[in-house]
Simulated assay, not measured.
Amino acid sequence: MKPIVGAFNAWICTVVSCFAIVILSVIGSLFASDHHMMMGLEDDPQDGRAVAASIFIAVAVYAGFLVFCGFQAWLHVRASRRGAISL
């Protein structure tokens, strides 16, 4: 199987997805627990669980990116070990 995206793009997407999953998971868990830092002001949302649900959907999307881009990066590593010419 040949990679669809370039090696640099695959690695950057993998790293960004890892950071996004960690950061959004923390923010989502703060909203899910109605933490005072996220829910304290009058302009903040009233339903923290609904906000947390949408944030966790974004985490699932980033997890999909992580799997896809990680697989693409693995294909590049596998191709470079066999001595294939990379363009």
Rank of each mutant, 00 (worst) to 15 (best):
M1I: 00
K2S: 10
K2N: 13
K2W: 03
P3R: 11
P3A: 15
I4P: 04
V5A: 08
G6K: 08
G6L: 03
A7G: 09
A10P: 08
I12S: 06
C13K: 01
C13T: 09
C13S: 09
C13H: 07
T14D: 11
T14R: 14
T14V: 09
V16K: 07
V16C: 10
S17H: 10
S17I: 06
C18G: 01
C18K: 02
F19G: 01
A20P: 01
I21Q: 04
V22Y: 10
L24T: 02
S25D: 11
V26M: 00
I27M: 00
G28C: 09
G28M: 12
S29Y: 13
S29E: 09
S33P: 05
S33K: 12
S33Q: 12
D34E: 13
D34A: 11
D34I: 02
H36P: 12
M37Y: 05
M37T: 14
G40K: 06
L41M: 12
P45V: 05
P45C: 02
D47N: 13
G48K: 01
G48Y: 08
G48T: 01
G48F: 02
R49V: 15
R49Q: 14
A50Y: 08
A50V: 06
A50L: 06
A50K: 03
A53D: 05
S54N: 02
S54C: 04
I55V: 14
I55Y: 06
I55E: 01
I55R: 02
I57R: 03
A58I: 03
V59N: 08
A60P: 01
V61S: 11
Y62E: 06
A63R: 04
F65V: 08
L66M: 05
L66V: 12
V67H: 09
F68T: 03
G70R: 00
F71G: 13
F71K: 12
Q72H: 04
Q72M: 01
A73K: 11
W74I: 15
L75D: 11
L75K: 00
L75G: 11
H76Y: 11
V77Q: 01
R78C: 15
A79S: 15
S80R: 14
S80W: 15
S80A: 15
R81W: 10
R81Q: 13
R81I: 09
A84N: 10
S86L: 11
S86T: 06
L87D: 12
